[in-house]
Amino acid sequence: MAKNFYNPNSAPYYDPKTDRRVVFITGGNSGIGWFTILHLYLHGYVVYIAGRTESKVLTAIDEIKQEAEKRTTAAGDEALKRPLGELSYLHIDLLDLSSVDEAAKQFASKEKKLHVLINNAGLMGVPYELTKDKYEVQYQVNYVSHFLLSLKLLPQLQAVVDEGKVQPRVVTLASVGHNFAFKHFAPSDTINKNPNVIYTWVRYGQAKTANIQFASEFAKKYPDILSVSVHPGIILGTELYNYWKKLPVIGWIFKGSSWFLDKSIGVSNEEGATASLKLAMDPSVTAAEDNGKYYSTGGVEDTASKIARDPEFAKLTWDWNLEQLNERGFHLKG
């Protein structure tokens, strides 16, 4: 790992039989989520991996366990003595808010406490589309579904607060792409404009801006729970770019430019995961000192755009989405 990246090996190790630390993460069968789960598993965390396709997540679980075995064997006797964590699958479809609600219920039936929630899954740069819940697709997958999930899992997060041993954490994946939102867009604005090749990125920026606003507003409302947002880095080896890579003509251009960016400023999936891992595992990051902050590649504290860090815009985004979800029957207090 490059020395300017957080080293997850420096984090504490736990024995799930004596110190059960529970994580809920969306996505994770590939990309940075895969490596985030790998390191959590190596550190003894009990990880619930929420994804849409069971077969993909179960395959990822097998692969993560195999990789963990290789790494502990290679690291020697001390590593072999450390207990590994647990990995389990939960179904969630971020395109369907009723599925998000059900995933929270399923988790609550299995665990009374949640130590770390990682809002990891995302969608990027796709054509304009409304979901069955009547949200623009990138806005729902990246933001609304995670907003709903986080509030539905509040009882399990609060149980950790009440226990008083550690602070629970909510880590929300944002992106430097939030800067594509070049002005404040009302949460109700789906930005259905042409050309798509431009405005798909504006819509992405709107969603990722909302992620940053969510983290800061959540921190204000629940100060005993660490809530942060993070840009993991420019990562070209991820499924997020699949739509653009498959397009005729543009796909070839995109692949060529991606290769150049990857070689010049890109980071690997594992390097990208280090930011999430720092915020999930590092004891030096606390709610008292760091709540609501925005971080970048490697876990370095950073400054989001003026729009994303505007407290009035953050409150407006929170209040409007809370109202919309309650109108849809999700009964949130927030």
Rank of each mutant, 00 (worst) to 15 (best):
W34Q: 10
S175H: 05
S305H: 11
V57F: 07
S99R: 01
I32H: 07
Y41S: 04
G205V: 00
N9R: 13
A210E: 02
S30K: 14
D96F: 10
Y128L: 07
W34V: 04
K105M: 07
A219K: 03
A174Q: 07
L38K: 08
N4R: 15
F24W: 13
E327A: 15
A159G: 10
V249H: 05
A181T: 08
H115V: 07
D93R: 02
L332C: 08
L95P: 01
K221R: 15
K333N: 14
R52G: 07
I234Y: 12
S88K: 15
N211I: 00
Y143P: 00
Y6G: 00
Q106N: 05
L38V: 04
L95F: 15
I225H: 09
W244H: 14
S109T: 07
K278M: 11
G31N: 11
P8Q: 10
N321K: 04
R82Q: 15
R309Y: 03
S305A: 12
D224E: 15
D189Q: 07
L42M: 12
V249C: 13
N29M: 08
V166S: 13
A314W: 01
A287L: 10
A219N: 12
P83M: 01
D15F: 07
T200Q: 13
T36F: 02
D77F: 11
G27I: 02
S88V: 03
S268R: 12
S30L: 05
H231V: 02
L332F: 05
G251L: 11
A75T: 09
G272M: 12
A280Y: 02
T26A: 05
F147D: 00
A308Q: 01
S257T: 13
V170Q: 03
T297H: 13
P168K: 12
